[in-house]
């Protein structure tokens, strides 16, 4: 007996386990641990004071946090619905194109290729009240003679962020729904037309059930995206004015770095992740139900 030897599978997986541990598991445990401390970046020693659930208890009653939380959910709901409708429309138009469809598909993906930071800067410029394109256009068209304070008024700023978010990501829906439309057999649609369906009924009863799973995949991806929304907001308004566009992650980063309260920020982050998990579970349920319905083989 030369001592214990770990089983071969474990040994073979060890490199992967080590890398995962270094990159994912240890930071995760560390941040989870720090959410139970009053850790401040300016006082490193505070990392070793355990305060139990005090950070979490504080968050539960923190109006600022719940406002940001609610605003994130609102952004998510509105953005996803609008993107879904626009994406559906785009996909159906592109699907109809008999020529240059590949080109259109490529062009459709352009917004996804821009860095969100860049998108933020572009829209910050376009919505600028003095020199922005939007006000310029509105004034030239004679729709208003005011300089609308897009990024200064709270709800207008939220709207501006929404527009930027939608512009940059509608193509996620469009691409996935287009994939669904292209994969769809054409005969049921023809059968529906012969069966007496108007174009709207054909869409409602035949096309839509078929592309629903594709829409839910896009929903899942985008709900995770929007729940983590940070860069566009950071650039366009930085949560302002007066925290009127503060989202979860801008709040978390402000708490962690500007206020240097790392422990509290980590606790917030963990609560925020709950939101992502909830949405993911919800859309996955929907997705698998929709898949069963059309008897998809994937």
């Amino acid at each position: 007996m030369k001592g214990w030897r770990p089983p071969a599978p474990f040994l073979l997986l060890l490199p992967a386990i080590l890398v995962l541990a270094a990159v994912v598991i240890i930071p995760l445990i560390l941040s989870l641990y720090s959410s139970f401390t009053p850790f401040r970046l300016t006082q490193p020693a505070s990392l070793f004071t355990l305060i139990g659930f005090r950070n979490y208890a504080r968050i539960l009653t923190d109006i600022e946090f719940w406002t940001a939380f609610g605003r994130t959910v609102l952004l998510l709901t509105v953005a996803l619905n609008v993107e879904m409708l626009l994406g559906l429309g785009l996909a159906m138009l592109v699907e109809k194109a008999t020529r240059g469809q590949r080109l259109l598909r490529t062009i459709m993906m352009f917004p996804m290729m821009f860095s969100p930071i860049l998108v933020g800067f572009q829209f910050k410029f376009m919505f600028n009240d003095n020199i922005g394109l939007v006000n310029n256009a509105l004034q030239s068209l004679g729709l208003t003679d005011q300089a609308i304070p897009w990024l200064i008024d709270g709800s207008l700023a939220f709207f501006a962020i929404l527009v930027a978010e939608i512009w940059s990501s509608t193509s996620v829906f469009a691409i996935l729904i287009l994939a669904g439309l292209l994969a769809m057999p054409k005969e049921p649609i023809e059968a529906a037309r012969v069966d007496g369906c108007t174009p709207w009924q054909t869409f409602r009863y035949v096309t839509w059930p078929f592309i629903m799973p594709f829409a839910y995949i896009a929903m899942t991806i985008r709900s995770l995206d929007v729940a983590r929304a940070y860069d566009i907001v950071k650039i366009m308004t930085d949560g302002g004015p007066a925290k009127r566009t503060e989202l979860l992650w801008t709040l978390v980063s402000r708490t962690a770095y500007a206020d240097a309260r790392m422990g509290l920020a980590n606790a917030m982050a963990y609560v925020a992740i709950l939101l992502s998990i909830l949405f993911t579970v919800y859309f996955f349920r929907k997705l698998s139900a929709a898949r069963t319905q059309i008897a998809a083989e994937w």
Binding site: E187, P188, E190, A191, V194, G196
Partner: peptide
């Protein structure tokens, strides 16, 4: 839809 026909397709074309 205005012709009052029924059609049976080679691939059946049932609504899945």
């Amino acid at each position: 839809r205005a012709r009052n026909l029924a059609m049976v397709f080679q691939s059946y074309a049932l609504y899945p």
